[in-house]
Design a protein around this nucleic acid. Structure first.
Lengths: 371, 371
DNA sequence: TCTTGTTGGGCAAACGTTTACCTCGGAAGA
DNA sequence: TCTTCCGAGGTAAACGTTTGCCCAACAAGA
C-alpha cells in the first residue's frame, strides 16, 4: 500500500497516466491511517440545530438562507439562538453537492514567481472574499499538462469560475472554452478562436505610448527586449510599439528585437543585454516588455559601464511597486494591479449572469523616473 | 432580495454580525439568476460510468479507489474503458461529504503584498500539489476578525489543514488550537500557550549571526529597525541580535531600536531612517528585520548622502531574490523560501499521522554583498 | 357559509460518493 | 462429502444540504 500511494503521488505530480486508478486523478493524498480527529469535538450540523430548536431541518435551512414567509418570528428567534449557541455554520460540501455549485473560484497563474502575477493574485483574493468567494490558487508553471490537470481538478471541485492568469494553449483549455465553462482570461487572451472574457490593459496602446516617449525625446536608436511571443500580452506590446515607430519612419530590425531561450525574465534581460553591449554602441532607448527583463538588462548595462537613464533610457512594463524604492532609474508602464481584483469580480458577474463576453479594460500609465 | 444580498455581502466583507442569516456567514454570493449552465454538457458521474460498464456504482468506486480483490480483471478493464470514454473524474464534494474530509489545504497569509510571503505561498502551492492537495489562499491583512472569519470558513470547507503564515492572536484561533484542529504555524509561532507545529528558520540564531558580522568588522555603533514586535519572528531576531551584542559588551539603547507606527515595512524603514540621519551621525551598522525595511532605510540614507555599504553597513532579512539584481548594496539573511513548501508538507504528514507536535527548522544563510 | 389565498412548517427526495454488509460460486482442506 | 474460505460483486445506508410538495390553520372575500 505504501508503494501504491507513492506511485500515485508521483504520477499525479507529473500528470502521467499509468493505470486505472490514476486515470481519474484521485486516490492520492489519502491518509495512511485515520487522522486523529476523534478527539476533536463534533462540529454542529443542521440536524443538531433543528433538534435544539425543536423544528425540522427544512425550517433551519430556510431561515439560514433567508427564505421569507416560511417561519414565524418566534421560530426564527429560536433557531437563531440555537445556531449561535452551537456555533453552527453550514458545511460547504453539503451545500455544494446539493446546489451543484461551490463558492470556490480558481486562479491558475502561469508563474507565481513573477511579482506582477503575485500582485494580481493578492488583489483577486481580496476582491473575491469581499464578494463572498473563496480563492483556490494554482501555479501552472506555464506547463500545458499541468494546466490541464488543474482545469480537470477544478471542475471536479465544482468551482464557480476559473481565472486564467497567463494561459498557455492546452487540450482541455480548448475544450473548456468550447463547452462554455466559466473562464476568465487575465493579461493574456485566450489562445483559441472566438472571443473569451478578458481583463487586462491595452497592451498595444501602451507599447505605442512608449514609442511616443522615445520619439519625443529624439531617440531613434532603439531596441526591444522581450520574453516569449506566445503570450498575447507580449506580442501586443511589441506590435503596438513597432507599429508606432514604423509610423514615424523608424523600423526595428531583427537585430534590435532581442530575446533569449530562457524562462526567467531576469535571465532573458541579462543575456539579451549582453548582445547589446558587446558590439556596441548601446541603443539610446531600450523597451523591456516586463520589469523583470528591465532589471536583467540594467544589471548587464551597469557592468558595462552604461549609465541609465543617462546613456540609455530603459523603459519597463508592470511598474513593480518596489521600483520607487529600488529602481529609481527605471521608467515603466504602470499596470494597476491593485484594481485587477475588482475588475475580475465584475467580469465574473457578467459571465454568471449570462453576458456573452465580458471584457474589462484597465487603465495604464507611463511612469517616468529620471533621478 | 437585491438589497438583502448586498447587505449580506457587505457584512461578510467586514466580518460584522447583523442578523440571523449572516450569523452563519452564508447566503452571500448566490447568483441573482440561475447561471446559464444549461448549455454546458452534463459531466459524467459514477452512475453513468456504472451504467456504461454494466456494473454497480460500488464496483466503479472500488476500482477507482484501487481496492484490490473486489473486481475481476475483465471488469476492471471494462470500467476503465468507460471512465476514459466518459472522461469521468470523481466529484470532490461528493467524496468530501462522505469522507468528511477534503483535499483542500488553506494558507492564511498575513500580508501577500510582502514578497517573502508571496514566495512561501508559491512554494507551498507547488509542494502541496505534488502531494495531491489543492491550496486555498487567504490574505488576512493582519486583521484578527478576518482571520477568524477565514478559520471558520475553512472549517466549513472541511479543509485538511490550515497553514498560518504570520498568525495574529484571535478568538477562534485560540479555540482551534485548543480543539486540536490541524494547524501549522509558519514564520510566526503560535501566539498562544502550548507548543503548536511550526516551520521556519532559527530567528534568534540568525540575529546573533548578524551581530557577529558587525562585531567582526569592528562595527560598534549599531542600530536596528524593526516592524511590530507582536510577530514572534521579529521579536526573536531582535532578541538574538541584542543578546549577542550584549555578550560583547555592547548595549543597544532605546534610541537605537527604531520602528514606526505603520503597517508598510517600506514606510517604516523610511521613517525610521529619517530619525537616524537627522541628529546624525548615522550608525555604521544597521540591522533591518526585513528586506522591505532595508529598502526604506536605504532610500532615506541615499537621500541624505550616506553611502551603503561604505558609510553604513545595512543588513536585511529574507534576502529577496531581486536583491541580486536591484540591491547589490544589501547584505541579508537568506531564508530558503523555495524549500518551505516541502517542509510544510512534511510537517503536515507528521500532524496527520498524529505526531504530537511537528517542528521543522530550516537553514538560513547570511549573504554578504559589497560591490 | 363556502371558496380562495396566504402563512408556517414538515416530509422526503435528491445531489455523488464510499463502505459495511450480504450473497453467490467455486476452490481448497478435512 | 462437508466445511471453510476467498473472490467478485451487488444493495443500501450515510454524509449535510436544499427544495418541491403536501397539509393545517387561519383570514378575507363572495
Amino acid at each position: 500500500m505504501i508503494t501504491l500511494v507513492s506511485i500515485l503521488r508521483k504520477s499525479f505530480a507529473n500528470g502521467a497516466r499509468m493505470g486505472a486508478v490514476d486515470v481519474t486523478g484521485n486516490a492520492m493524498a489519502r491518509p495512511r491511517r485515520a487522522p486523529p480527529s476523534a478527539d476533536r469535538p463534533a462540529v454542529a450540523s443542521i440536524t443538531s440545530v433543528a433538534a435544539r430548536a425543536g423544528v425540522s431541518i427544512a425550517t433551519v435551512s430556510r431561515i439560514v438562507n433567508g427564505i421569507a414567509n416560511k417561519a414565524g418570528p418566534e421560530t426564527v428567534e429560536r433557531v437563531q439562538r440555537a445556531i449561535a449557541e452551537l456555533g453552527y455554520r453550514p458545511l460547504s460540501v453539503g451545500r455544494a453537492l446539493r446546489r451543484k455549485e461551490s463558492r470556490l473560484v480558481a486562479l491558475l497563474a502561469a508563474n507565481l514567481g513573477n511579482p506582477a502575477m503575485a500582485a494580481i493574485a493578492a488583489s483577486a483574493e481580496t476582491a473575491l472574499r469581499e464578494a463572498g468567494y473563496v480563492m483556490v490558487l494554482c501555479d501552472t508553471h506555464d506547463r500545458p499538462e499541468l494546466q490541464d490537470e488543474y482545469l480537470l481538478e477544478m471542475r471536479a471541485q465544482l468551482v464557480r469560475g476559473i481565472i486564467l492568469l497567463g494561459a498557455v494553449p492546452s487540450t482541455h483549455l480548448e475544450r473548456f472554452v468550447q463547452q462554455g465553462e466559466p473562464l476568465l482570461f487575465v493579461n493574456r487572451r485566450s489562445p483559441f478562436a472566438g472571443t473569451a472574457p478578458f481583463v487586462g490593459v491595452d497592451n498595444a496602446l501602451a507599447g505605442a505610448e512608449v514609442a511616443d516617449l522615445f520619439l519625443s525625446r529624439g531617440i531613434h536608436d532603439i531596441a526591444v527586449v522581450h520574453g516569449s511571443l506566445k503570450s498575447s500580452a507580449t506580442a501586443e506590446r511589441l506590435e503596438g510599439f513597432a507599429q508606432r515607430l514604423a509610423g514615424a519612419g523608424i523600423r526595428l530590425p531583427k537585430s534590435r528585437r532581442l530575446t533569449a531561450p530562457l524562462l526567467d525574465h531576469l535571465a532573458i534581460g541579462y543575456a539579451a543585454a549582453g548582445r547589446l553591449v558587446a558590439p556596441g554602441p548601446v541603443p539610446r532607448g531600450i523597451f523591456c516588455l516586463s520589469d523583470l527583463i528591465a532589471y536583467g538588462v540594467h544589471k548587464r548595462l551597469l557592468e558595462a559601464g552604461v549609465r541609465v537613464p543617462g546613456d540609455s533610457l530603459v523603459v519597463g512594463f508592470d511598474d513593480n511597486p518596489l521600483n520607487n524604492w529600488l529602481a529609481p532609474w527605471l521608467s515603466s508602464v504602470r499596470v494597476p494591479y491593485a484594481s485587477f481584483g475588482a475588475a475580475i469580480v465584475e467580469a465574473f458577474d457578467g459571465i454568471w449572469s449570462g453576458a456573452t463576453s465580458r471584457h474589462v479594460e484597465l487603465p495604464h500609465e507611463l511612469v517616468l523616473r529620471e533621478p
